Amino acid sequence: MMDLKERCGSQGSQESSSLRPSSWQTFAHTSTLHGLRFVFPYGQPSVRRLLWAAALLACLVLLALESAERLAYFLSYPHVTSVDAVVSGSLVFPAVTICNLNAYRFSRLTRNDLYHAGELMALLDVHLKIPQPHLAEPDVLASLLEKANFTKYKPTPFSMKEFMERIGHDLKEMMLYCRYQGQECSHSDFKTP
Rank of each mutant, 00 (worst) to 15 (best):
L36E: 05
L36Y: 01
L36M: 06
R37I: 04
R37A: 15
R37Q: 14
R37P: 00
R37Y: 02
F38K: 07
F38Q: 10
F38D: 14
V39W: 04
V39S: 04
V39C: 11
F40D: 06
P41Q: 02
P41I: 03
P41V: 04
Y42F: 11
Y42R: 13
Y42A: 11
G43M: 01
G43F: 01
G43K: 01
Q44V: 04
Q44I: 02
Q44E: 06
P45R: 04
P45W: 03
S46K: 00
S46P: 00
S46N: 02
S46G: 03
V47P: 02
V47A: 12
V47F: 13
V47W: 11
V47Y: 10
R48F: 12
R48H: 10
R48N: 13
R48E: 15
R49S: 15
R49V: 15
R49T: 15
R49E: 15
R49D: 15
R49P: 04
L51W: 13
L51S: 12
L51A: 10
L51R: 15
L51N: 12
W52N: 04
W52E: 07
A53I: 01
A53N: 02
A53M: 07
A53L: 10
A54V: 14
A54M: 09
A54K: 10
A55V: 14
A55S: 12
A55Y: 13
A55R: 12
A55L: 15
A55I: 14
L57W: 12
L57S: 15
L57I: 14
L57E: 07
L57C: 14
A58K: 03
A58R: 04
A58Q: 06
C59Y: 05
C59H: 07
L60K: 06
L60T: 04
L62D: 08
L62K: 07
L63G: 03
A64V: 03
L65S: 10
L65R: 14
E66V: 14
E66F: 15
E66H: 15
E66Y: 13
E66P: 01
E66D: 09
S67N: 08
S67M: 08
A68F: 09
A68R: 14
